[in-house]
Amino acid sequence: MKGFKDFIMRGNVIDLAVGVVIGSAFTALVTAFVDNLIQPIINAAGGPQNLGLGFLLRDGNPATFVNIGAIISAIITFLITAAVVYFVFVMPMTKARIMARRRRGLPDEEEDAAPEDVVLLTEIRDLLAQRGQTGTTGVATERL
């Protein structure tokens, strides 16, 4: 039971739970905005029919209506949600990490070390270039 309590009381789990709740509420807000404001505008572009932007696969059967307006609305909902997540959560967290690294005296971005084979090939290239300049091999070498 202690392990479960430690898991639940971890900061990451609580932050995740708060994020899920806020995300759900925000999704409901964006969905209401798109369904009640954007969707009617998209449906108006579909013409005078009462079904909205789309087409019927079989005339007279509304169950075969392909609702293109709903797809466009879903894309708009996704883009609005992604933009808000980026500008409200991702961008400030990135700036906070950069500022924390600067306060600790570390560079802004950690440079990835080159793979060992790339380092070895670079050394070989440099040695070949050096030999080509000094003429120790007696054979002209191309610069790689």
Rank of each mutant, 00 (worst) to 15 (best):
A74M: 01
N36V: 01
G69A: 09
I98A: 14
G19I: 10
F78Y: 02
A100F: 09
A25Y: 07
Y86R: 11
F26K: 08
Q130T: 12
G19Y: 13
G105I: 09
R102Q: 11
F33M: 09
V139W: 04
P107M: 06
A82D: 08
G11F: 05
G135N: 07
I124V: 15
A17D: 06
T94Y: 07
E111N: 02
A82N: 03
L29I: 14
L51H: 11
D35M: 09
V84A: 09
L53V: 06
P62G: 08
I72H: 01
P107H: 05
A17E: 03
F65D: 08
R104H: 05
V20R: 06
L16S: 15
A100K: 14
R58T: 12
I42W: 02
G11P: 01
D108F: 02
A100W: 03
E111H: 02
V139S: 03
F4G: 09
G46M: 08
A74H: 00
A44M: 08
A113Y: 00
D15P: 00
A82L: 07
L79Q: 05
A96I: 10
Q133D: 07
D108G: 03
G54Y: 04
I80S: 01
V119I: 14
D59I: 10
I76S: 02
F4Q: 15
R103S: 13
E110Q: 12
E109I: 11
A82T: 03
I71P: 03
I76K: 00
